[in-house]
Amino acid sequence: MPNTEYLKIPRERVGVLIGPHGKTKETIEKASETSIVVDSEGGSIAISPHEDAEDPLAVWKARYIVKAIGRGFNPEIAIKLMDDEVMLEIINLPDYVGKSKKAILRQKGRIIGKDGKTRDIITEMTGTYVSIYGKTVAIIGEMEHLQVAKEAVEMILDGARHKTVYSFLERKKQEMKLREIKMGPPI
């Protein structure tokens, strides 16, 4: 079928995508005007547009929602990707630290922080959602906020001290707040 997108998600995330009695999958299909076919055994997904879908990006949006669920986000957060302003960024940890399981584990621990403190600070300061799952760090948010959160994660991956990252986030939060005041509320 033309315009059909195919992707794979981890098998252990298939149940989250489908949801109780298929409700989550149904909600995504309704919101995105698509049909989603799930192969529960292999984690393969096929997403096709409804014939009467009005949004030309419907399949693309549904793909990112499914991808976000596959990267550890709960469906309520992933569905925010239906908004044109909200995007998904996935950082592949082996690209930064190599394939060593020990190095990946250490960096995941640094990004999460003690009792989740670092992830919570990144989330609060940028207004984004952060999921650390498998060998990836995924971020959902509006473009400018997402870029700041990504930069903070990359700083940690590059070995920056947490204090330095927190100062960076504080500065960026102030800059974004000032810009919003100058520009006024969105129309």
Score class of each variant (00 low, 15 high):
G141K: 04
P49R: 12
E54D: 10
I112M: 12
V86F: 00
E54N: 15
L93H: 00
L105E: 12
V59E: 06
I139W: 08
M125Y: 14
V59N: 14
H50F: 13
M82L: 10
I111T: 09
D95K: 10
D52V: 04
A68I: 06
E151T: 10
I122Y: 07
R71A: 12
T136F: 01
L88S: 01
I77Y: 02
V59Q: 04
K61F: 13
I77D: 02
G141L: 04
K101C: 06
N92D: 09
D115A: 11
G109S: 06
E142P: 03
N74I: 02
L88P: 09
D55E: 04
A53Q: 10
M143K: 14
R63N: 10
A152Y: 04
V148Q: 07
L57I: 13
I121F: 00
D115H: 15
E51N: 15
V66N: 05
T118W: 06
Q107D: 14
L88F: 05
M87W: 08
E144W: 08
P94N: 11
V130L: 14
I91R: 04
G134D: 00
G127E: 07
K101Q: 13
T123S: 02
A68K: 04
K108P: 14
T123P: 03
D120Q: 11
K114F: 13
K80V: 01
D115N: 15
I91K: 07
K114H: 11
I69A: 02
G113C: 09
L81N: 02
R71N: 02
F73N: 00
K135L: 06
K114S: 09
Y133V: 03
I121C: 11
V97N: 05
S100L: 06
I132W: 08
V137T: 09
L105W: 15
I65H: 07
I77T: 12
D55K: 05
R119H: 12
T136S: 07
P75G: 05
E144Q: 09
Y129L: 01
T128Y: 05
A103R: 07
R119T: 13
R106W: 06
R119Q: 15
I104Y: 10
I112N: 03
A78V: 04
A78C: 04
T128G: 08
I79D: 07
G134H: 02
R106N: 11
I139R: 09
I77Q: 01
Q107F: 15
D83S: 10
I104L: 04
M87V: 04
I112T: 05
I111E: 00
E85S: 15
I111D: 01
E51M: 15
D120M: 09
E76W: 08
P94R: 00
I104G: 13
I132F: 14
H50Q: 12
I69K: 02
I104S: 08
F73K: 02
E144P: 05
K102L: 06
I121R: 09
R71V: 00
Q147R: 14
K61N: 02
